[in-house]
Amino acid sequence: MSKIEMRGVSKKFMARREELLALCDINLRVEEGEFVCIVGPSGCGKSTIIRIIDDIIKPTAGVVKVDGVTYDNSLPIPRELVRKMGFVFQTSNLYPWLTVRENICLPLKIFGLRGREWAEYADFLIDRAGMAGSADQYPRSLSRGMSQRAGVVRAMVHRPEILLMDEPFGSLDERTRERMNVELLDIWRESGITVIFITHNISEAVLLSQRAYIMAIDPGRVIGDVEIRLKRRDLSALSDYHFVEYCDYINRSIGSIGLEKAI
């Protein structure tokens, strides 16, 4: 049984009294413990997909199945299922009135997870992320990279089984982004968590994921998926021949769709 499954999912938005088809007939599967990237140009609906999975927005049509629970556009999903998911946003979204530690521990409060075990786990994650020194500061004193790191830790503090990441490192400089990517891979290997990672950066998608779904725009749709088998997943892979081939393949897939539309 797949951890996440979407069948025939569509989403329409109303924009200036006109219906806008953001997603059209999306079908995808993510297996347990898999690291999947969804890659595509800006505005193709990548972020909408993970928002539908996390029940932040409802699909117009289609069925979503997460961890065996099926849901559609009617009722809110069960709280236990919400707890199984962690969400990392494009910006860190830390609340300025809470210290970094309080921000990180916020999901524990919301989900009512009390006790020493949880507090110790939060401390472990804070240490692991190298944030022990800044844990009692307010977010405004953090750099963008550190803020985003805190956002990732917050999404993991309640031990979710699924991590949904919406271009989390998109606003960071190249070197910080590379370092964060490597750290994320370490976390994924250690925890065995299922990850869906949204990006428009093809090399980032190839480096991180075991499988990448390729999306096109107008309307947002999946045009293919590619299984990525790299011998090693670290920064040295960037110069690997296969890595370049995968990037080229995805690039051509997205590019060909663009060309068709232009013609």
Binding site: R51, D54, D55, I56, P76, I77, R79, V82, M85, F87, F89, Q90, T91, N93, Y95, L106, P107, K109, I110, F111
Partner: peptide, 19 residues
Amino acid sequence: QQREMLAAHGCSRRQILTK
């Protein structure tokens, strides 16, 4: 984005107001 953050955690009305 802050609204989405609350929605992602399935916050209740009371939690949204107090937290």
